[in-house]
């Protein structure tokens, strides 16, 4: 037994020495770093605050696939799902601001702070760029009695709380999209949260609910096969994939809501590094192969540079603050 303990002690000492040596070795290059943006010299991680296989994940993977050649270093995806993205947002904003941890955040980052449940904050990120934007849309069964958005909303107005509107989770962007419609038109829905867009669409197909407020891409297959129909999209212009579907604006309702995804690094990341990342990811975004992939996935590409993206997020942030307040979605912690 004594011998064992001696061995344990020895190994511990050796590993400690390694730690110390590691600190010393690592500290030197950091001192020189500011002027020489020799970046990147090791693999870059993209935090995806959602599970593997979803839209955000696919987008990030497709981008990483292109960006790794441009940056000359591996770009790996780290999925950190949970709490409407909060887990990943928080991990991303508290990461070391050296540019090696990029986060792909999305609309919920300007919503969850208002819900009073988490410390996610888009101001803790230096945005790199916005990548994608998808509008919300109201979709009903193809054999539903409403032919136009107006008929649907008139029915909802006449029968407050009777139209069951599925969304992808409480406080999710699609929940707030439906709430925005309520806010702007004075109707009252019965919001039914599901564990994502797909289960909500399934419930609609099965007739458990009357309508869903998700993106056109998420109902694309069922619309194409004639089982569902889209009444209107909440954006400025019609969707490329569904040119015959009118926007809310065209039908006389001032409602523009959508989800978006963008890239950012923690605050404090050196300017030149952000620029290198921006240039690489922008180039990846312009790659025809990537554009084709995004197209097939039904993800609308909508580039915004860092400055505009910041303004855009600030506006959304203020907007949702009012809406969450109005809806009483804030979780009071007693």
């Amino acid at each position: 037994m004594k011998k064992t303990w001696a061995m344990v002690a020895m190994v511990l000492v050796v590993s400690l020495m390694l730690v110390v040596a590691g600190c010393g070795g690592g500290a030197k290059p950091a001192e020189k770093a500011p002027e020489a943006p020799k970046f990147p010299t090791k693999q870059i991680e993209i935090i995806v605050p959602a599970g593997a296989g979803g839209g955000t994940d696919m987008l990030a993977r497709a981008m990483a696939n292109k960006a790794k050649d441009l940056l000359g270093q591996p770009v790996v995806i780290v999925n950190k799902p949970g709490g409407s993205g909060t887990v990943g947002f928080t991990a991303g904003q508290t990461a070391k601001p050296d540019g090696y941890t990029v986060t792909m955040f999305f609309a919920e980052i300007v919503i969850v702070p208002h819900l009073g449940i988490a410390q996610a904050d888009h101001k803790l990120f230096v945005p790199i760029m916005r990548v994608n934007m998808d509008p919300a849309a109201i979709t009903v069964k193809a054999d539903a009695p409403w032919k136009t958005l107006k008929e649907f909303l008139d029915y909802a107005k006449a029968n407050p709380g009777k139209v069951r509107m599925g969304n992808s989770g409480p406080g999710s962007i699609w929940h707030l999209a439906a709430a925005t419609v309520e806010d702007k038109t004075g109707v009252k829905f019965n919001h039914v949260p599901y564990g994502g867009a797909a289960p909500a669409v399934t419930a609609l197909l099965g007739g458990a609910i009357e309508a869903v407020a998700v993106s056109p891409a998420e109902v694309g297959a069922q619309v194409a096969s004639g089982k569902l129909k889209i009444l209107g999209v909440m954006s400025d212009k019609r969707e490329k994939a569904f040119p015959e579907v009118k926007t809310f604006k065209e039908q006389g309702y001032e409602v523009v809501v959508g989800t978006w995804r963008g890239l950012g690094v923690p605050k404090g990341t050196p300017e030149p590094v952000v620029k290198i990342l921006h240039d690489a990811f922008k180039k990846a975004m312009d790659d025809p192969g990537f554009i084709a992939q995004a197209d097939k996935l039904g993800l609308g590409l909508a580039y915004l540079n860092a400055a505009d993206f910041t303004k855009f997020m600030d506006a959304d942030f203020a907007n949702y603050a009012k809406l969450v307040d109005k809806l009483g979605l804030k979780q009071q912690k007693k």
Binding site: K3, T4, M7, V8, V11, S15, L18, V19
Partner: peptide
């Protein structure tokens, strides 16, 4: 705890060796 800082490649063989040694000399 150590793995979080020092990484997987260095700590793992040491940890394995230690455990094996404790279990049987």
């Amino acid at each position: 705890v150590i793995m979080a800082y020092v990484g997987f490649l260095i700590t793992t063989p040491i940890c394995l060796l230690l455990m094996m040694q404790v279990l049987e000399k």
